[in-house]
Design a protein around this nucleic acid. Sequence first.
DNA 1: TTAATTATTGAACGACGTTCATTATTTTTC
DNA 2: GAAAAATAATGAACGTCGTTCAATAATTAA
Lengths: 209, 209
Amino acid sequence: MPIHRMPQTGDEPPGRRERKRQQQLDHIADTAWALFEAEGFEAVTMERIAEAADLSKVTLYRHFPVKEALLRHVFHRELRAAWPDIQPELAWAAPGRARLARFLELQAAWCESRRAFLLPYTRFRLSDSRLPAEGRERSGMEAIFSELIAQGQAAGEFRADLPVALLAMHLQFAHLATLLRCLTDDRLALADELATMLDLVCNGMGGRS
Amino acid sequence: MPIHRMPQTGDEPPGRRERKRQQQLDHIADTAWALFEAEGFEAVTMERIAEAADLSKVTLYRHFPVKEALLRHVFHRELRAAWPDIQPELAWAAPGRARLARFLELQAAWCESRRAFLLPYTRFRLSDSRLPAEGRERSGMEAIFSELIAQGQAAGEFRADLPVALLAMHLQFAHLATLLRCLTDDRLALADELATMLDLVCNGMGGRS
DNA sequence: TTAATTATTGAACGACGTTCATTATTTTTC
DNA sequence: GAAAAATAATGAACGTCGTTCAATAATTAA
């Protein structure tokens, strides 16, 4: 069997190379996060991130093939960090639409304090399909939507004639579109628009089949 | 009053400068269309388009500030050209969902023969919000959706508690998302996925308010 | 015709993302 | 342990997108 890629059993202890890789990823993400926060996503060049993290530009691009992939990595790390605070709040709402609505409320608040990152991230997520296969794994948000929708389906609140993945994708695009609209038009309140969006996604726009 | 931008009454005869501009736009679009069709969107550089159209690169960028703007211009020209064939077919279906479904059918067929352009165009449309104001005018597709939805609202088939523009935007994003999915996954049939998408947009995913 | 606007151009630039040959490091195998 | 194979990292150069600038040509307004 080919040695260089073993079957990913996952329980084997990672070698030193993998460990160093992970901590270097963390180091890069920390550095990038700080720079993005200080100067904005567009203003920071990949070369500067590389220098600040004490890496070659080529090496940085080996880890993150496009700049937005780095943004996504950083962003998802933040999202994972916020999840323990968000999740218990959701249990109070009934599975299905109510819980989804509660999540969007909490999410909106979380997003408000990350406006600088949110616009480029949203744009990228809306149109990305050029990341390598491993990068096309479920995004943090997509995984959460899938979970919440599956709960709603199990509770009989969401239609079960369509696969969860499709519903989740539909919701996610509507979500991203709403974010994009709000971020490019300051007159729109994120929380309100998200509530309207959820209404539309759940109830449809009224056409009978 | 400032001379260089008059109120755009529109009925004054355009000067020679404006006429030359228009025919140059047409010339550029023709050239770009041919190159795109022959070699694909990504493979053609802006410099080559400029050379082929006998222009300076800077001049080309003056007309189309980003490459995708040129693609959009070319694409919308095609769509406008196809519209006379599509529109009469729509009158046979009742306004509202049926007519929308019919449009998506015809659209799918039209798209099938333009796959090469469709992917970059879709990606761009999904995430564009950096075009100059004049460029953010309603896209061809968005205008059509708006019209069809307004007809459905008037016929009482679509809910009227939300503005047409919002419904149209929602539909358009779902539409683009479906295109993106089908173009990046050959196993999916465009017509089928569009029908499912319309179902989802019209009927919602089943959550009660 | 003169004066003010606008179009067009070449040349250079910064940034993204890639390629390549070379060197260092880790992992495997003996 | 040491040798060999595989992978990681590097600098340097390159192509493309998109922009800036100063200079020239063409159009319009006075």
